[in-house]
Each structure stands twice: as C-alpha cells, then as structure tokens.
Simulated assay, not measured.
Amino acid sequence: MSGERDDPLNPEPLNPEPLRPETIRLAAVDGEPVPRRGLKAVLESNVINHERLPMLEVVCERMVRTFATSMRNLTSDAIDVNLDAITSVRFGDFMDNMPLPALFGVFQVKPWESYGVVSVDAGLIYATVDALLGGRGGARTLPPEGRTFTTIEMNLVSRVVQMALDDLAIAFEEIAAITMGLERMETSPRFAAIAEPSNAAAVATYHVNMEGRGGAFSILLPYATIEPVRDKLLQRFMGEKLGRDHIWAAHMASELYNTEVTVDVVLGEKMMSLRDVRDLKVGQTIALSHTPEDALQIQCGGVPLGRAHIGQRSSNIAIRMATDMSKGYPK
C-alpha cells in the first residue's frame, strides 16, 4: 500500500518528507524565532503573574504627601511630586532598561534583613543639586554625556534618597514598624544587583517637578523583601485608616468588657473513688486540705485566673483578690 492518499481537505501526503537541516536553519534565521518551551519559557517569560497588593499602593500614595513636604522644607522651592505608576517587573529587565547616567541607591530594610534599590535619573539629580546649591530654577542644559557624577553631587543626592526612604518608612507605619537605611550609592546597575535577574519586584515610579526642572526616581522592592508583610499588603484599603477600622475595634473592645462571665472559686479538690461518692449521705462532712487562711483558686470556664481569700461581708460570702489577673495566673 502507498503511504499517500488523496484528501480534498488535506492535499499533503500522510508521510511528509522530513525537514532537512538547511531548512531548519533558514526557518530559525530568516523567519520567526523558534518559540521557547518548557521550563526555559517559564523562566524567561516577560509576563509576571502576581497578586495585586492594595495596601502597597496606599503606602506609595501616602508617601507622595510626606515626601513633597520634606522636599519643600529642604529646598524652599515649590515642589510637586506625583506617583506615575506601580508596576511589577523582573529585576534584570528593570536594571537593563534604566537610562544612563543615573544613580542607584542600595538600601536595607533592617527588620526584614532584605534590600531594595532607589534609582534616580539624571534630570532629577542635576535639579536637586542645583536647588540645594542655590540655583534660581528653570530649565537648564544637562551636562555632556559621559561625565561622571562628582562626590558632592552623590552626597547631595544620597541625602535626598535617605529622606525619601524615611518618608517611605513612615508610610509603612500602619503595616509594620520598619527602618530603611541607605548603604551605598552606585553609578552602574551592575554594582546594585541585590537580586537575581529573573526575580520579580514591585516598582513605584515618582516624578518630581521643581519649578520647571526635575525628573523621576523609582523605588524597587523585590517580592522577597516584602514577603514578611505580604498578608497585610493584600488587605483592602478602607478610608484613611490604612486598612484598620479603629471604630470597629473600639466597639468590639467595649462589648467584650461588658460581657457577663461566670467566675468559679474552687474551695478545694479531693480524689475519691466512685464507691465513696456513691456512699455519701446527707450531712456527711468532706475534709479538704485548705485552711481558711489559704488563697483559693479562681477559674473561668476551667481556666485558672488567679487566687483570692474567702471571707464574709454583709452576711454574704465574699472573696478578696490576692493576685493580679492582668499579670496571669502564677504557675
């Protein structure tokens, strides 16, 4: 039998001739690139699957107000700060696409023992230096390409970067108490590598306008850095309370304080056999090991709360606390 047959819908034979090596090479060079498959396609994919972090957006928005105030106090100029976007990128793609010249500030989030990067573009660098050194403002021509940043410029920019990190830490107060310290300033992205190129990170980009001059800076936080507070960052924003409803918390505490509970005073305990319990008669006395001067145990639902002395007041049996319940029951 022949390996071919006539098919009006598929005129090609069932056993087509295999492609020659020359054909494969031409398809890879002259045509479309061969698609990546398997694990390599997953690792090198440009699409990042991530969960939306509503509270991180709130923190970045809150930083706009505090940082604008800090910049006005530092430069005595009219400062306008805007949050351009919050995106998720791979660390390597962000560093490779950062236009140079630029400065990269590596900072540490001390409670989390993790790192982040602040990138400042050339426009904001020269605008900041000009404002701090007494410039009159307005658009200015940037220095020629290839010129490196001086020590004075890096010191002035590092001061502004640290101020931005302090404002970001203040914005994080409702999420977690953290401190961010600038460790070093770098001019090359190769020396600011704090994560693997394929690691995902959240990037908040801000634009600063200083009376006709200014530029942009970005704060990059790898997802591994914010992992300790990931659950809190997933919360939804409810008003200006940064996800915490103080009115509801106060109402809950008030209702708990007004809840009625039954408190038991244990006069004593004695182990008895079932036979002895069955033979108990009316009027029979059970001897306990406690004396009237001993402190008795107070329980609530079987949980020990403290100790108290028993007595009598106004013809009623009363107890007087011997330990403080707020400090827990002494073991």
Rank of each mutant, 00 (worst) to 15 (best):
T150H: 15
R307N: 11
G181P: 00
I175M: 05
L274M: 15
A177N: 15
E269P: 07
F237Q: 05
V208C: 01
H207R: 12
G38M: 06
Y257M: 15
P54Q: 10
D324E: 11
A85D: 10
P54L: 05
Y115K: 13
P143M: 02
D6V: 12
K331H: 08
I226A: 00
T69R: 06
G3Q: 15
N258D: 09
L56Q: 02
P99H: 01
G134S: 07
D324I: 13
F94S: 02
T259C: 11
Q235M: 13
D30T: 10
V59W: 00
V106H: 04
S326I: 10
A176P: 03
S289M: 09
A171V: 01
F172W: 10
A287N: 06
M98H: 06
V118K: 00
L296S: 15
D130V: 02
G92T: 00
D96K: 11
L156P: 06
P11S: 07
Y206M: 03
E32T: 11
L220R: 02
A164V: 00
A204N: 00
E32K: 06
Q299T: 14
G92D: 11
Y206P: 10
K241P: 03
D264R: 14
L233G: 00
D30H: 03
M271I: 15
P8K: 04
V266E: 15
R62A: 04
L103T: 00
T225M: 14
K241C: 04
E269T: 10
E174I: 07
K331M: 09
M98A: 08
P8E: 01
A169E: 07
A204Q: 02
A177C: 03
R159F: 01
A27N: 06
M55P: 05
L26P: 00
G116Y: 05
I226S: 01
T151L: 14
A193G: 04
P54R: 14
A318G: 10
G38H: 05
P16F: 03
E153W: 02
K331V: 12
I247K: 12
V282Q: 12
D130G: 00
V208R: 01
F191T: 13
T150L: 14
A253W: 06
A164K: 01
C300K: 04
G138T: 09
E183W: 10
G311M: 03
F217P: 01
S289K: 11
E174N: 12
D130N: 05
P33A: 04
D77A: 13
H251G: 05
K40L: 11
R5W: 02
K110D: 13
I319N: 03
A169I: 08
W248Y: 08
E22N: 01
G311K: 02
D167M: 07
E17I: 14
P189R: 04
T225L: 15
V34A: 08
L74A: 08
R244I: 14
L256H: 09
P13V: 10
D324F: 07
G328I: 02
